[in-house]
């Protein structure tokens, strides 16, 4: 049996068309979980990163620790979270947020710090308050970096959200886990492939967003004089 026929077996099965184990349902579950994790991570990391970037306090700490957190084993975190919080959404969300937060934090910090110092100086000089400078000048100028950070975080979260299946939750991880458990490798491979496709789609989505959704003056960047 080659992987192409595995695929047709996987997609051809009536279970994939409707019901709880259908592809659409699993993708929806997967996306919902990923979105939830990204939402909490953003809520946590972006305001904190903006503040750290603006004040310049704690930048060294952030850059030093952000790299280290990437080495955290997600599966280990899930296990830890299950031990601490019991089986449930939290057990999966915790490690996913821990995964997504560092790139967002770094992006926010760097984005704000990369604001043209002349622009910041002018903003203060015309009489903006710190809050107005941060939200009205530094935040827009950090948008490309934030979007790039969000893209990295999203791809990682989508790829890693498969762990939800370990603790009995849904998502595309179900195919991988269930396939392995029942030695139905067609299902495992199909599930893995869907995760990859979803991650690639997310990449594309953010590439388009960066291209078309950013304010024109930010998108074009400054040209050298």
């Amino acid at each position: 049996m080659n992987w192409l026929s595995w695929l047709s077996d996987f997609i051809g099965s009536p279970d994939r068309r409707s019901g709880p184990d259908s592809i659409l349902n699993r993708i929806a579950e997967h996306l919902a979980l990923s979105a939830e994790a990204l939402f909490y991570a953003s809520l946590l990391a972006i305001p904190l990163g903006l503040l750290i970037g603006y004040t310049g306090r704690g930048v060294t700490f952030v850059t030093a620790t952000a790299g280290a957190t990437r080495a955290l084993p997600t599966l280990g975190l899930v296990t830890l979270a299950v031990l601490l919080a019991g089986v449930g959404d939290t057990a999966v969300l915790l490690p996913l947020v821990a995964l997504a937060a560092p790139p967002l934090l770094v992006a926010a910090v760097e984005g704000v710090r990369d604001t043209d110092p002349d622009v910041r100086d002018a903003a203060r000089g015309v009489g903006m308050t710190h809050r107005q400078v941060l939200l009205g000048v530094c935040l827009p100028s950090a948008l490309p970096a934030l979007l790039a950070g969000l893209r990295t975080a999203t791809v990682q979260v989508i790829a890693t959200a498969t762990v939800a299946a370990y603790v009995g939750l849904g998502g595309l991880g179900r195919y991988v886990i269930d396939g392995l458990a029942t030695r139905d490798y067609a299902v495992t491979v199909g599930g893995a492939l869907l995760v990859v496709l979803l991650a690639v789609a997310a990449q594309l989505f953010f590439a388009l967003l960066a291209r078309y959704a950013l304010p024109p003056g930010i998108r074009a960047q400054r040209r050298p004089d």
Partner: peptide
């Protein structure tokens, strides 16, 4: 108050320092 004071004083710097995202 620094911000109020500055709103009453025109300020022009070397690199113009225009806000890139604003028309």
């Amino acid at each position: 108050d620094a911000a109020k004071l500055r709103r009453g004083i025109g300020y022009v710097i070397q690199q113009a320092g225009l806000f890139p995202h604003r028309r």
